[in-house]
Design a binder for these strands. Structure first.
Length: 669
DNA sequence: GCCAACCGTG
């Protein structure tokens, strides 16, 4: 080899070569970083991963490995994250923190805790990044004991009162139910932010202590800490069935808040929807759209139950189209809510279509579909679904059994109902709750086993509520059992003294037995207690508007046409054999001309309005706030045949699908 | 090089 004569020149040459290689490496690295930092899709991510593996320079770069780990975690693949982690030769807190966070963000709490333990065991010290994260693992897995084990060393290191760790501790104690300790940590923190307060609010709300959660909100206000959308979100676990004044409080909070965040709207809609304020929920949804905000999957899942409740099927359908257009599917909550919305609007086929098109179904999906069939009297279809669900290895829960039991009772499937009750207790070890007892009493009662139903109540290990006794009273009315009826009514007058329906049921029982004195007595009793009969109201939706009718209503702009048509229809019905069934009008405590009164029941008016307002062939959907009376039931069967229309009536607890003179309930309701 | 709370369906 030729001796080097000019070392300077050579070194210059060497140096440019190194630079060039370095530049290549830098370019490659910058390229990889750029991709990893921009949420690559899974395919790109895997390509980048193999590129890193094939290049020793990139492979040995720990910061790239960290980015790779985060990207895999973001794709919900903590197992792959772990593989990358295991190949990194060095161990420090940052690397371990990223691994723990990958587990935690994917709900692999146990793995996160194991990782934490091995980190400590190998001498890597947890820091102020580790603690908030591992505390979240404790919250997520409800491990108060381990949480406390984290708290102690945190105190020793003086990290317990730092903002992020302190907040994590408040959240952990709150989630695990130790609210005293959560509050103590909050009080001792020298510096708190909105997250600290929201964590405290969430703690109370998660434990069903809504009043105390609101107290914290009030405290915040008094300290000039302005509640934010996160505060609303924190309240939400406790918002179901709360008192009116609490709804008012949350509404005030919402109104005082900046409106550009979807979360605040979502929570407010859910508050309305979960407190029997469906029309408010739907109005707020429209207002939100008018505000220019685009609903997300959570908005949709929150507002759909309200649509179902109002039978607002055209809004429901529009939302469905939006879901399809915005590709908010597949999403379990959204799809399940769609099934239920359609089911509550009486659109069984549409509900089934959503169900059939789902890629993944959970117990909620199956339950929604089963109760859709159940409420329409299609007990065998519900049973078929239940078996399919079992075959697929899904475990029915308590609510799934409520749904199948009620399907059996509505369809008169006594033995099947008894079988599922047994299955629930013996195979699935589910302790029956009030809802199940109500179903069983209803099942036995509807099948005419009134005594057995009463025995079932007597054997209940929990105090029966008004719904249980109500089911028994209904059965007594159907099967003319006055003795047990009086017992049931006695309980009901104490448990639900303001519910007029129960007085009317009892008066019905007396009337059928010819005990007119007792009928009068009940009427006086109701008067004395100031109880008014709830007027029957029927709704029918037309072009996005809900039209409401009372019995004998003459307030609708098209009243004249409605009554003319009713008259014509009545003639045709009588020709076909319809005889008004006046003895069911006994429940009318007011003495009125029975036949005439029957003819103008709200559902009849609503149906006639539907007929004159829509084209032939369009089904008519009615929602009623009371049960359909027997006369209307007979009349609607005739109407469906004469006008050749499908008529769907939703009453308080079930659906009647009338078609060609037949009702889906098989006259059993 | 990496952090915390909080919103949905039967």
């Amino acid at each position: 080899m030729k001796p080097i004569t000019n070392p300077t020149k050579f070194s210059r040459h060497l140096s440019t070569a190194t630079q060039r290689t370095q530049t290549i490496h830098q370019n490659a690295e910058a390229f990889v970083i750029q991709i990893l930092d921009n949420n690559p899709d899974f395919k790109t991510l895997k390509e980048i991963h193999s590129k890193i593996i094939s290049d020793p320079h990139l492979y040995s770069d720990t910061s790239l490995a960290i980015k790779l780990m985060r990207a895999y975690a973001a794709h919900g693949k903590p197992e792959i994250t772990r593989k990358v982690f295991d190949e990194i030769p060095e161990r420090n807190n940052v690397i371990c923190n990223v691994m723990i966070r990958s587990y935690v963000n994917n709900h692999f709490y146990k793995d996160a805790i194991l990782m934490y333990k091995s980190m400590v065991a190998s001498g890597v010290m947890p820091d102020h990044y580790t603690l908030p994260c591992i505390l979240k693992a404790c919250s997520g897995s409800n491990s108060l004991r381990f949480g406390v084990q984290i708290h102690c060393p945190a105190v020793k290191k003086g990290l317990d009162l730092t903002l992020y760790t302190g907040n994590g501790l408040v959240a952990m104690y709150g989630k695990c139910g130790n609210l005293v300790e959560a509050r103590r940590v909050l009080d001792e923190m020298p510096y708190r932010d909105i997250v600290s307060w929201n964590s405290m609010v969430a703690g109370y709300a998660q434990n069903g202590r809504f009043d105390e959660a609101l107290e914290v909100c009030k405290e915040m206000e008094s300290l000039s800490v302005i509640p934010d959308p996160g505060t609303m979100a924190s309240l939400s676990p406790a918002i179901t069935n709360t008192r009116k004044e609490n709804v008012v409080f949350v509404k005030k909070m919402f109104l005082n808040m900046a409106k550009e965040e979807l979360v605040a709207w979502n929570v407010m809609i859910a508050v309305y929807a979960n407190n029997s304020m469906s029309s408010e929920a739907v109005s707020l949804y429209s207002l939100m759209e008018a505000h220019g905000l685009k609903p997300d999957a959570i908005t949709i899942a929150s507002v759909l139950p309200a649509c179902g409740d109002l039978s607002a099927v055209s809004l429901g359908k529009r939302i469905h189209e939006y879901v399809v257009m915005k590709v908010l599917r597949p999403n379990l909550s959204v799809e399940n809510a769609l099934i239920d919305m359609y089911a509550k609007c009486g659109c069984l086929q549409e509900a089934r279509k959503v169900f059939d098109e789902m890629q993944i179904r959970d117990v909620v999906s199956w339950t929604s579909m089963m109760s859709a069939y159940g409420r329409s009297g299609k007990g065998h279809e519900a049973i078929e679904l239940f078996s399919k669900m079992q075959e697929l290895g899904l475990v029915p829960d308590s609510i799934a059994f409520v749904s199948i039991l009620s399907a059996c009772s509505h369809a008169g499937l006594l033995n099947e109902g008894k079988y599922y009750y047994k299955l629930m207790r013996e195979e699935y070890k589910i302790v029956p709750r009030l809802e199940h007892f109500t179903c069983m009493v209803d099942l036995l009662g509807r099948a005419g086993r009134v005594n057995e139903a009463y025995d079932h109540i007597k054997r209940m290990p929990v105090e029966p509520n008004d719904r249980v006794w109500g089911a028994l009273l209904s059965a007594c009315n159907v099967y003319n059992n006055m003795d047990i009826g009086i017992i049931a009514a006695d309980h009901l007058f104490q448990l639900a003294p303001e519910q007029s329906g129960y007085y009317i049921l009892l008066s019905n029982i007396y009337a059928k037995a010819g005990r007119w004195k007792d009928v009068t007595l009940i009427r006086l009793f109701m008067k004395g207690r100031g109880i008014k009969k709830i007027p029957g109201v029927s709704n029918v939706e037309l072009d996005d508007r809900v039209h409401t009718f009372l019995a004998g209503d003459r307030s609708h702009p098209r009243t004249a046409e409605i009554y003319d048509e009713l008259d014509i229809l009545l003639g045709k019905m009588k020709e076909a054999g319809y005889v008004p069934k006046t003895d069911t009008a006994l429940h009318d405590v007011e003495e009125e001309d029975k036949e005439n009164h029957l003819l103008v029941h709200s559902e009849k008016l609503a149906i006639v309005f539907g007929i004159i307002s829509t084209k032939r062939g369009i089904p008519i959907r009615i929602t009623k706030n009371l049960r359909v009376c027997e006369d209307c039931h007979i009349a609607i069967k005739y109407i469906s045949k004469i006008t050749d229309r499908r008529i769907v009536v939703r009453d308080t607890n079930r659906y009647h699908h009338f078609e060609s003179g037949i009702c889906s309930c098989g006259d059993y309701w």
